[in-house]
Design a binder for these strands. Structure first.
Lengths: 188, 188, 188, 188
DNA sequence: CATGAATGAGCGTTCATTCAT
DNA sequence: GATGAATGAACGCTCATTCAT
């Protein structure tokens, strides 16, 4: 095979897309993304069939990466609270470390052409996190609400926390902790 | 004369914009909004200098309306909890009653060309709500966090609650109550 | 109505399309046609929804014009031969006078996106000519062949004749006459 | 070495081009032709310098093949009418047998970038057929018209006949005969 | 002031051709 | 020579905005 489709280039496009989306929003021209990735505008379409395809894949990759980061090193032997705390810490730390990814992910979340498949897959990636949360919810005051309600609440609290961590990086850890305690109060 | 021209038409455009944004997103053509408002495409620009201007004004109007609804009938004599509950109830009820406005507001919130002025004014509109929340925060576990953190958390919890109320209107009241209790736990 | 859609402009676009198609073929950019018509590239699309639409309308207009020219001044009292001769003369003269239209028509005939409706309408325009030919066919050696066969043969003979008339304008009349006699022999 | 590289591959490309042109028209991507030929898109350009080159060569090859088929088995001892009839029969039979080739040839005939050389060579290929026709023409009513006129007329009659033969294969032979008689009447 | 045609920059995508492997 | 990724000019069409009526 001559000049195989390089994974590096694919990654470069995705990385460029993050940067460009953060700067210009979802309306950013594919040509700009291509230039930022250091390739010709047409080349983008060897790696992604359409702009929507690119955005779907990017969304999924970011979401998956985020979920993986959040789930890292969870010891199943630990207390539920410890597990939750670890997950929360992982999660918010990831956001603080990758503010562009986080922002792009937020924007992509409202991208009109996200596929049902993409959404489903993104949901799948969150399952491990959901499982842990679920154990906490089912014993507390939210026990009669739908599981998705609790997940969504955790999500929204996390988003808010992340915003503050990114805005005010000096107190990032503090914000993260405060956020977690708020979550825990909500759950218990 | 602060606002010459027909105020009716202005309102028609704003109302049309809500409907169109909900259906098509922020990328919706101004021509579509104009048609929906029953006016000629060019006329839209008699009332709003640019598309961005229209969106800024709409955002502000919606936010202000929402805040006004939330602050309605708050008795300063009542308990803090009662006041908060009333505000929460007003707020989420407004969203349940105006799902399009709520959705449009959410979309406009990520509109890239929102002015600093617009954001500031929107923030202002929320002050009365913030004041009440502030009293609760300052006595509880969030007492050492910035006020905006608490506001943002309340906001995100409210957003989530509203989503579920709109999604599942039969249990709207229930969701609203559960959401409030979660908030209250978070605050105390 | 402000600045009503001018028929002049529509005609200018059609006329420009003829010229450009002759020079560049069906692949000619719409922008070139617009420039040739003296309007902005985007304006073309106020008059024709798509390039295909433009080409369909142009095809129909040319075909209709051609058929009308061919059918001009036919006396129903005259001999069949005289009528046929008149039609043939009208027809080929039209082509000789409007070589660009004729060429564009030929190219448009193989345009891949001609609508069934367009083809049907074009067919309709040819009916008056077909009627006359039909009377000749049904009495001669082609009486057992499908009517369309005779029409197609007349067509192809006419096309050939026109080519020669345009190529060699000095003997246009002579070519036309020779062509007609050939047709007549074929029919009788 | 006039033609290095694999002759098989060259033929495969030409054959593929016929199929693709019939299905998609002259605008068909070279990449599609290459895929249909079972080679890589870039390889096409090892065999043909440009798309136009490919189309020119294909046109010539088809025309030559057609002319060869038409001229097959002509006995110079036979009557002029018999020779013409044989040629006509060969010719139209070829079309009926190779409808794709015939259709591609027709499309290529209006390809804008056919070279003068190609046209000349194609003309050359028709000479043997022209010679026979010429003998008929020079004695009949077309004796005062240019030879090319007669050739073109025969051509156009043949095209029409072929169309009907392909459209209505059950009566192909009949159409062929009727077409020939029409030609013969025209010539005499 | 209302209208809607006119404008033209801009976008996503295609594709003939080139060239690194 | 074969491959297929890379290139970038080009195209059809959209749409915010302007302006003649």
């Amino acid at each position: 095979m001559a000049r195989p489709k390089s994974d590096d280039k694919r990654s470069a496009i995705l990385a460029a897309a993050i940067r460009v989306i953060v700067k210009q929003g979802l309306g950013a021209p594919t040509a700009t993304i291509a230039r930022e990735a250091g390739i010709a505008n047409g080349s983008l379409f060897t790696y992604f069939e359409t702009k929507a395809d690119l955005f779907n894949q990017l969304y999924l990759e970011l979401k998956t990466g985020m979920a993986a980061a959040a789930s890292d090193g969870l010891s199943h032997k630990a207390t539920l609270r410890v597990q939750c705390a670890r997950m929360w810490s992982n999660w918010t730390r990831w956001a603080a470390k990758h503010p562009d990814s986080r922002r792009a992910l937020a924007l992509l979340g409202v991208f009109g052409d996200l596929t049902a498949e993409t959404r489903a897959a993104a949901h799948q990636a969150m399952v491990p996190m959901a499982v842990i949360l679920e154990r906490a919810r089912s014993k507390g005051p939210l026990r009669n609400s739908p599981m998705n309600f609790a997940i969504a609440m955790m999500n929204s609290l996390a988003e808010t926390t992340m915003d503050f961590m990114i805005q005010d990086p000096k107190h990032a850890d503090e914000h993260s902790k405060v956020g977690f305690e708020a979550l825990w109060r909500m759950l218990n």
